[in-house]
C-alpha cells in the first residue's frame, strides 16, 4: 500500500476526496435507479472532459506559482477558428488541428513571455489576453458557426462500453502530465519555481524560459479541450469558454494543490473533477436546481481551503 501511495503521490487529501466521491455515489444510487447505469456514468464522463483538460492545464500553471485566466477567451477563440477551418474532410481537419494547436501554443507563449520577461502579474496578463481573445472570437462570428467533419463528431461521441473515447484521452493526458511532473527535469523545475522562485533563479534554473514553456503547455492543452468541445457541439461557439477561467481553478484547489504553488499534483485534480461532476449529476437527479449547486461549490472551496490550512499548521 505504501508503495502504491508513493507511486501515485497519494496524500491524505486524496483519501478525503475519494471518500466524498463514495458518499456522493451512494447518495446517487439511493436517489435514482437510473444513476448507476452505464448510460448515466458515460454521460457524467462526457460532461467532465472539457473541465478535466483545462483543470489539468491550470494544475501545471498553479504548481509553478502562476495562474492562467485566459481559458475563457482562448477556448472560445480556438473553438471558432477550429470550426471555421475544419471543413468536412480529413485534410481540412488536420490543417485546422495544426492551426489551432499552433495558436494555442502561441497564446501560451505570449502569456508566458509577458509574465516572465516583462514581469506583469500572470493574473493581469491572462485576464488581458482572455479579454482580447473573447473579443476576437466574437469578431469572427457572433453566432455559433462553422462545422467539423462528421467522422470527427462521431469520434467525440464514441464509447467503449461505458467509457467515452474522450475520457480515455483525458486519462492518457493525466498520466502523461503526471509522468512529466515527477519523472522529468521540466517537472522538477516547475515544482522548484512554484516552491521558491527566487531560490530557483539563484540556483541557476532557467526560470523565465521554464515559465514560457509552462504557459505554452497550458495553451496547448486548452487547444485540445477546444477541439474536443467543438467536436461535441458540431459548431464553433464564440462563447464556448465563458466561465472556464474561474471554473478551472476549483478542482485544482479542492484536489489539494496550493494556490501559492510548489505543492500538489494531478491526481488530486482528477479526483476533484470527478467529485464535482458526480455531485452536479446527483443534485440533478435529486431535482436540486443548479442554484444550490453553486452554493455547494462555494462551500466546498472554503471547506477544502480551510482543511489544508489546518494541515499546514500541524
Amino acid at each position: 500500500m505504501s508503495t502504491l501511495v508513493r507511486a501515485t503521490r497519494a496524500q491524505p487529501v486524496h483519501l478525503v476526496v475519494l471518500a466524498l466521491i463514495a458518499i456522493v455515489f451512494a447518495l446517487g444510487m439511493s436517489t435514482s435507479d437510473r444513476f448507476a447505469t452505464p448510460l448515466n456514468i458515460a454521460n457524467v464522463q462526457d460532461q467532465m472532459v472539457t473541465l478535466a483538460i483545462v483543470a489539468l492545464a491550470q494544475t501545471i500553471v498553479i504548481l509553478s506559482g502562476g495562474i492562467d485566466l485566459s481559458y475563457a477567451g482562448a477556448l472560445s477563440f480556438l473553438a471558432v477558428v477550429f470550426a471555421a477551418l475544419a471543413g468536412d474532410s480529413g485534410g481540412t481537419l488536420l490543417l485546422a488541428m495544426a492551426v489551432v494547436i499552433a495558436l494555442g501554443v502561441g497564446i501560451g507563449i505570449v502569456n508566458g513571455a509577458i509574465t516572465a520577461y516583462v514581469g506583469v502579474h500572470p493574473l493581469i496578463t491572462t485576464l488581458g489576453t482572455s479579454t482580447i481573445l473573447a473579443g476576437a472570437a466574437l469578431l469572427i462570428t457572433r453566432q455559433p458557426s462553422g462545422s467539423v467533419p462528421l467522422f470527427f463528431e462521431d469520434l467525440t461521441y464514441g464509447r467503449i462500453g461505458a467509457v467515452p473515447f474522450g475520457m480515455l484521452f483525458v486519462i492518457a493526458l493525466y498520466l502523461l502530465v503526471g509522468f512529466m511532473l515527477w519523472r522529468t527535469g521540466f517537472g522538477t523545475r516547475i515544482f522548484a519555481i512554484g516552491d521558491n522562485e527566487a531560490a530557483s533563479a539563484v540556483s541557476g534554473l532557467p526560470v523565465r524560459r521554464t515559465k514560457v514553456a509552462i504557459y505554452a503547455l497550458s495553451g496547448l492543452l486548452c487547444a485540445v479541450a477546444a477541439m474536443h468541445m467543438t467536436g461535441r457541439f458540431g459548431v464553433g461557439d464564440p462563447r464556448a469558454g465563458v466561465g472556464f477561467d474561474l471554473r478551472s481553478i476549483t478542482p485544482v484547489i479542492v484536489g489539494g494543490t496550493l494556490l501559492a504553488g510548489g505543492k500538489g499534483g494531478v491526481l488530486g485534480t482528477a479526483l476533484a473533477v470527478i467529485l464535482l461532476a458526480l455531485l452536479a449529476n446527483v443534485l440533478n437527479f435529486m431535482n436540486v436546481s443548479s442554484f444550490y449547486q453553486w452554493i455547494a461549490e462555494g462551500v466546498i472551496i472554503i471547506a477544502a481551503v480551510s482543511f489544508f490550512i489546518g494541515k499546514d499548521k500541524s
Partner: peptide, 23 residues
Amino acid sequence: YRKVTPFLATLATMIVLQGIRFA
C-alpha cells in the same frame, strides 16, 4: 483570520452569493 487566499475566499463568496440569489 482564516488565512484563505483573497482570490479563493472571494471566488467562493462570489459563487455562494450567486447560488443564494438565484435560489
